[in-house]
Amino acid sequence: METNITVDTKGMACPMPIVKAKKALDGLQSGQIMEVLSTDKGSVNDFQAWVKQTKHELIKHEEENGVYKFYVRKI
């Protein structure tokens, strides 16, 4: 998937993944896609809730060797 920015929060604890993601998303334009990498086990629920509430779109998320990847399209 083509992404406009990758936010690497591997190793960071709550609430940093969301804080970093928000900062990065603020810098994007509508329609652009952000990829977030995280190793925080709570991040799957966190990102689903956060994207829903902030009204952006979670295109997909996947897990690979303990690293969670989220793809968020800015609305």
Binding site: C14, P15, I18, V19, A21, K22, W50, Q53, T54
Partner: peptide, 11 residues
């Protein structure tokens, strides 16, 4: 402060 920072990220 964790909740406050999370809420700020929630805009």
């Amino acid at each position: 402060f964790i909740i406050a920072n999370g809420a700020a990220a929630y805009d």
